[in-house]
Write a protein that binds this DNA or RNA. Structure first.
Length: 585
RNA sequence: GGACUGGUAGUUCAGCUGGUUAGAAUGCUUCCCUGUCACGGAAGAGGUCGCGGGUUCGAAUCCCGUCCAGUCCGCCA
């Protein structure tokens, strides 16, 4: 070993020892006679001292070192005369008597400090330098801890980690596949898995009744701050279980992670139906750190000759506590915000519940005071509160109300970074009717089982397209602070029902056989009842570690917005020769 | 596919209602400094103002196009 210790471990207890340290020169402070050097490695920073009075030659040598030089220093651990209590090693320093340059370094293009001066693009291009910074480095080390906690939990509960292939078969339904050309079967392609879904189900058929995998998945869709083309899932499946068993088991996993990584004891996760989530929060992943629930106002605002509301499918609102003092300017700004194409509301109505008890609304012309009061009662609004109202087509308005709720939550500082509110959203719809393609789509995926009471509909009712009856699924999501971190379902394990599902989804017999024959065949050989869940590992990490929904700084080498790796400059063209070999030319 | 924001020194940004020599901070180089820890002080180098076109006597600044980056909508079962 070139070193006896790391830069993070020496303290006052080590005074008197002779040590060798290796690391990168983080910063040098030269006093023209003596020089201090902060030596950095993964574990921390230790100060080296060079004094011209005691060792002139070494001092001159140290002066020549540049930032990020890799050096090896040997010397005595000494107590400092001026201590720095801000860092763990701040009570000691190394009086160096031997210095070795292991490698020189060009001056890095940005400063490698906790708060770097580098922009995103540059940091991504030199990601290996960015990873030297404490914040990103710690994210990755914490991510490792999350992974360890997961494996620990699964191992203790009898789950087996089994690998599944990456070169698989393209399937219809779901996200766009990444595709790999086959050299040996020219003109044919493998697909990279969007998730190991079918494999884990086949493992259940094989009898591995508790399976998990921390595994890469690939989806060729547009990206976001919280979405990468390749991302990691904690993929899990269990046999001989009902929904309740799955919920219990994986709630336990999330709790175990928070305990191990953040030393937090989370309370039992509340359950909320999808229907209620949409009704009260306008999304299927409610941020329950604050209330401000959506109230439907159809029964109290219709019939007042206010055309906007009389014509609207849904009128709903939220009550922002203590915002009655909002100025015209602030309200105009909010109105502008809800009218942005991304939100798409027609306008914004409001009622101010003034501190003197009077009510002032944006539609006073049509509503008398008692009518306004009636609306205010819906929210249990108090003096000083502001009620914000949106109206329009039902789905769009609910969504917009959900967005407005989050925006007000942000403005009022109700989305507390130090809090974690986890919940299960249950009873998701099984299918969604797609107007454009005039067919049903699986909301979760086509292997999700319908609720018992909807099985008959699967055979006899599904042709009544977009009927008022929406079949429900044994499907569930874990939501933390408004972020969907995982989702799963109890699967179909019966061949006939699975075939029927494909039929409902509009696949022909031939397509079904060609694309999914393997799993239907497997179901003929004793498939056990089973179900599972998959967690977005990157998202879970970013939430657990920093309570944020931006995953790039939790991935060592992420891709940018357009799916490019700016460090490698990939994707890139390939040789004509390669193309020819693959039958692409 | 769409909306919005940004692109100026190595870096982060200011300048942008058109007008002498495009600034600041930081980093870098040199010098001074023996207890700093974001050390301090002095001097210096460093710019195709993303790219192309247009308007104008004159464009970093206005207009059009284009590329790149970021956030969001669509999309992501």
């Amino acid at each position: 070993m070139l070193r006896t210790n790391t830069c993070g471990e020496l303290t006052i207890k080590n005074v008197g020892q002779i040590v060798s340290l290796c690391g990168w020169l983080a910063r040098a402070r030269d006093f023209g006679g003596m020089t201090f050097i902060d030596l950095r490695d993964r574990y921390g920073i230790t100060q080296l001292v060079f004094n011209s009075e005691t060792n002139k030659e070494l001092y001159e040598q140290a002066k020549k070192l540049g930032r990020e030089f890799v050096i090896r220093a040997t010397g005595d651990v000494c107590e400092r005369s001026n201590k720095n209590l801000k860092i763990p090693s701040g009570e000691i320093e190394i009086i160096v008597n031997k210095l070795e340059i292991l490698n020189e370094s060009k001056t890095p293009p940005f400063t490698i400090e906790d708060e770097s001066d580098g922009g995103d693009e540059l940091r991504m291009k030199y990601r290996y330098l960015d990873l030297r910074r404490t914040s990103v480095k710690n994210n990755l080390l914490q991510r490792h801890k999350v992974g360890q906690a997961v494996r620990e939990y699964f191992d203790a509960n009898g789950f087996a980690d089994i690998e599944t292939p990456f070169l698989i078969k393209s399937t219809p339904e779901g996200a766009r596949d990444f595709v790999v050309p086959s050299r040996m079967s020219q003109g044919e392609f493998y697909a990279l898995p969007q998730s190991p879904q079918t494999f884990k189900q086949l493992l259940m058929v094989s009898g591995f009744d508790r399976y998990y995998q921390i595994v890469r998945c690939f989806r060729d869709e547009d990206l976001r701050a919280d979405r990468q083309p390749e991302f990691t899932q904690i993929d899990c499946e269990m046999s001989f279980v009902e929904q309740e068993d799955v919920l219990q088991m994986f709630e336990g996993m999330v709790k175990h992670i928070f305990k191990k990584v953040r030393n937090l004891d989370l309370p039992k996760f509340p359950r909320m139906t999808y229907a209620n989530a949409m009704k009260y929060y306008g999304v299927d992943k409610p941020d329950t750190r604050f209330e401000m629930k959506i109230s439907e106002l159809n029964d109290v605002v219709k019939g007042k000759n206010f055309k906007v509301y009389d014509d609207a499918e849904l009128i709903g609102g939220i009550c922002a506590k203590g915002c009655a003092e909002y100025t015209r300017k602030q309200l105009d700004k909010l109105t502008e915000w809800v009218k942005r194409p991304q939100i798409g509301a027609g306008g914004l109505g409001y009622i101010k519940y003034n501190s003197d008890g009077t009510l002032k609304s944006s539609f006073d012309k049509f509503f008398d005071e008692p009518s306004l009061k009636k609306i205010a009662e819906k929210f249990s609004a108090k003096q000083g509160d502001l009620i914000l109202i949106l109206a329009g087509a039902e789905t769009k308005t609910r969504k917009a109300l959900g967005e407005l709720r989050l925006e007000m939550g942000n403005k009022l500082g109700l989305r507390d970074k130090s809090r974690f509110e986890c919940l299960w959203v249950v009873d998701f719809p099984l299918l969604e009717w797609n107007e454009e393609e005039q067919r049903w789509f699986a909301m979760h995926h086509p292997f999700t089982s319908p609720k018992k009471e909807d099985i008959d509909w699967m055979y006899n009712g599904y042709t009544e397209k977009n009927s008022s009856h929406a079949p429900k699924a044994n499907a569930y999501d874990v939501v933390i602070n408004g972020v969907e971190v995982g989702g799963g379902s109890i699967r179909i394990h019966n061949k006939e029902l699975q075939q029927q599902m494909f039929k409902v989804l509009g696949l022909t017999k031939e397509e079904t056989e060609q694309k999914f024959g393997f799993i239907l065949n497997a179901f003929e050989f004793g498939a056990p009842p089973h179900g599972g869940i998959a967690f977005g590992f990157d998202r879970l990490c970013s939430m657990v570690i920093s309570n944020e929904d931006y995953i790039r700084d939790y991935i060592a080498f992420p891709k940018n917005n357009s799916g490019r790796d700016v460090m490698l400059d990939s994707p890139s063209p390939i040789d004509e020769k390669q193309k020819k070999e693959l039958g692409l030319k």
